[in-house]
Design a protein around this nucleic acid. Structure first.
Lengths: 210, 210
DNA sequence: ACTTTACTAAGGGAAAACCCTTAGTCTAAT
DNA sequence: ATTAGACTAAGGGTTTTCCCTTAGTAAAGT
């Protein structure tokens, strides 16, 4: 029996997932949680082999939750379950210690396959993710060089909230010129050419939620 | 027994929904479809009381699917199931003939309540939607005045794809000045003040997909 | 026939975004 | 100690967006 926990703040999706997995032999759903926090609280008391973790959640997101969970239980295995197939996602999740990555649009069979793979000590990444990784490897872009700094993420989130450069400078108590520098660097690093593209990119990359 | 069909292109969500509803007494899931097209094809052969219809789908969206389904079977009842609580959604769905509106983040009980309500000839709108409607009614904004024209929707979608005014003008074979007029009118009608906010608004209002 | 609406287009001006450079301070790593 | 990176800020420039006005044409409704 493989003991599974599910962490997702989408109630209907989570309930559905519980039922889908409960039907599968050798899989035992031992808990489901609507937030990273509630999962972490219950973590020590439960016997969990694999966690299906949503990345985008209110409050503690999947990446942070994974990091904290792994620091408590290093043997815990995590499969990220997410909506989009974008850049920084999987790298951050792999860094946080995830062993698999499945899209929400995937079906039951792919998910079960991922669970078995990961349970046997392997990894599972959906085809779409592998393609992204391959493309990135071929294009030879260095991840680290293009990672946003803390401040840049902060500015990006304010941009996505619709604040102008002036408003951002007031919110962060820095000059407009500094905000301009951040904006430019964000656009360069994200490889987007204007705010419209940047907002979409930010959503897909989990920097902001709709 | 209430015969339910589910139309949603998100496989895992759909499968989950089938299982959740199959557990409920008096509810019988007679079919589930991953597109508006496949649903419409099967419509005549099935005995369906209520359809749970996702709004945002690849190909035929929920609104169009509802319109076509109702033209074939006027007595069919439709409950819209969607991600966001935004303006034009529910108005379009109500116009298309929907009797209910439930958010995807809602739980099983709310969904079942909606199904019973609609099955008994009533309507069901989730609290969040009702609040939006009430707010709109109080603020007294006329829907029609602020509805985007065909051309404006076209421009909006290109904006969301990250095209500049110049690029849009070239794509639509019109002058930059005309595009500027459309941009201004879109911002005014949507009541958003810049492109960042507009993109988010467009996503929530189903004008574009991520 | 008249009105309304959508779409088109232009002028003109203010504001914001974008892009480049230089440069100082501070922190963290080798 | 020296290097590297993040954050700050300014100068100076181009481009784009934003907002206003006016205005002609075509289609649709009353």
């Amino acid at each position: 029996m493989i003991n599974i926990a599910i962490v997702d703040d989408h109630e209907m999706f989570r309930e559905g997932l519980v039922l889908v997995l409960s039907q599968v032999d050798e899989i035992n759903v031992v808990g489901n949680f609507n937030s990273g926090d509630s999962f972490l609280k219950a973590l020590e008391e439960l016997d969990i082999d694999i966690v299906l973790m949503d990345i985008k959640m209110e409050g503690l997101n999947g990446i942070e939750t994974t990091q904290r969970a792994k620091s408590v239980k290093p043997d815990l295995k995590v499969i990220a379950v997410t909506m989009f197939v974008e850049d920084s996602y999987y790298m951050q999740m792999i860094n946080a210690g995830a062993h698999g990555f499945v899209l929400k649009k995937a079906g039951k069979y792919e998910l079960v396959q991922a669970i078995h793979e990961v349970n046997n000590g392997g990894n599972y990444f959906s085809q779409e993710i592998l393609q992204k990784m391959a493309f990135k490897a071929i294009s030879g872009k260095d991840e680290k060089e293009n990672q946003l700094s803390t401040r840049e993420v902060e500015v990006l989130q304010l941009i996505c909230k619709g604040l102008s450069t002036k408003e951002i400078s007031e919110a962060l108590f820095i000059s407009q010129k500094t905000v301009e520098v951040h904006r430019s660097n964000i656009l360069r690093k994200s490889d987007q050419k204007n705010i419209a593209q940047l907002v979409i990119w930010a959503i897909k990359n989990n920097y902001t939620t709709i």
